[in-house]
């Protein structure tokens, strides 16, 4: 990012002479430049950067509701490693992530390919696809909870009608609760990622498709050998965003299942919320938050490096 910003620097700035008068201009530029950023940076720094720094400090203390904090070293982290419900939350988060990412990519890419055709009704369809994404999580949760209701819900009724005599208990069953949440998560997110893929599809050069067709490539071959490689930057961005958004999944689970039944849908964010805001163990909760922080950063960095290696 920094390199691209530097290469995009205005040519005029380079004309600035390198001797003394330039340094005065540069100082003036610095002051004006900072003054532009300051109003936003005040809020951003105080409400994002400072809390992140404080988070690391807190994770090494036994900070609790009374605001007393003693340095406890790595005690919170040691406890975290042996904490059964953290382990479950961690595994559940991975489970959600591993299911949600491929499902959403396939669904949203499929939608984008479909909408990239000039079929009639495409405009209406794009609106429909985007609608779940702008709907509030509370509405989504309430409606899907009832749709998933095992005995009186429309979903199981349809399943019974097509011959499945014992449809899953969905949100009431420990095995099916997470798949149900993933289905709703995918339903909500696919319109958003579809827009990203649609933008990416516009950058695929027509000539490449034409050339491949001349060489006798079929629809599927062209998709694999032309469309997908051209979509790689988009795919990278989508995967990174999807991974972060899956790892931090919280609101959907909180309103749909509350982590239940049992702990079958409990995730890391919820673990942090419980320990922090419900049990006031701010220090311990912070150590779990640091774990989430590094998980997201690590995954992003790995994907970034992998993307770089492949593009060389």
């Amino acid at each position: 990012m920094a390199t691209s910003a530097r290469t995009a620097a205005p040519p005029a700035a380079r004309k600035v002479p390198q001797h003394r008068p330039g340094s005065k201009l540069r100082r003036h530029n610095t002051i004006v430049g900072w003054s532009f950023i300051l109003p936003n940076f005040l809020g951003f720094g105080l409400l994002t950067l400072v809390p992140i720094v404080v988070l690391f400090y807190m994770s090494f203390t036994n900070w609790n509701a009374f605001g007393t904090a003693d340095w406890v070293g790595f005690a919170n982290y040691e406890r975290l490693l042996t904490d059964g419900s953290f382990r479950i939350s961690f595994l559940n988060t991975l489970y959600y992530t591993v299911l949600h990412i491929p499902l959403t990519i396939v669904a949203s890419l499929g939608l984008a390919l479909l909408l990239n055709n000039k079929l009639r009704g495409v405009a209406f369809f794009r609106t429909a696809a985007f609608f779940p994404y702008i709907t509030s999580i509370v509405a989504i949760a309430v409606v899907w909870n009832l749709l998933f209701s095992p005995d009186s819900g429309p979903i199981n009724e349809v399943l019974r009608a097509i011959g499945i005599t014992e449809p899953p208990g969905w949100l009431t069953s420990p095995e099916w609760a997470m798949p149900a949440v993933v289905i709703v998560g995918t339903w909500r997110d696919m319109g958003y990622y579809m827009v990203l893929f649609l933008a990416g599809l516009q950058t695929v050069p027509r000539e490449l498709h034409e050339a491949a067709r001349m060489d006798g490539a079929g629809v599927w071959q062209r998709f694999v050998n032309v469309t997908l490689p051209c979509l790689r930057p988009t795919m990278f961005f989508v995967t990174v965003m999807l991974t972060i958004n899956s790892l931090k999944i919280f609101d959907l689970i909180l309103v749909m299942t509350g982590g239940g039944p049992g702990q079958s849908t409990s995730v890391i964010s919820q673990f942090i919320y419980r320990r922090g805001f419900e049990e006031n163990q701010f220090g311990f909760a912070s150590s779990a938050a640091v774990a989430l922080f590094f998980l997201c950063i690590a995954v992003t960095v790995v994907q970034f490096l992998w993307n770089k290696k492949r593009s060389v």
């Binding site: 950023i37 790892l247 919320y273 922090g276 997201c296």
Partner: peptide, 25 residues
């Protein structure tokens, strides 16, 4: 101006940081 790129990197970097991780502090 000096510090611009570093500052922007800070902004971009936080997009990868979930709010859930620093909501307590």
């Amino acid at each position: 101006f000096r510090g611009r790129d570093v500052l922007f990197l800070l902004y971009i970097g936080t997009i990868a940081v979930p709010w859930q991780s620093y909501m307590i502090p």
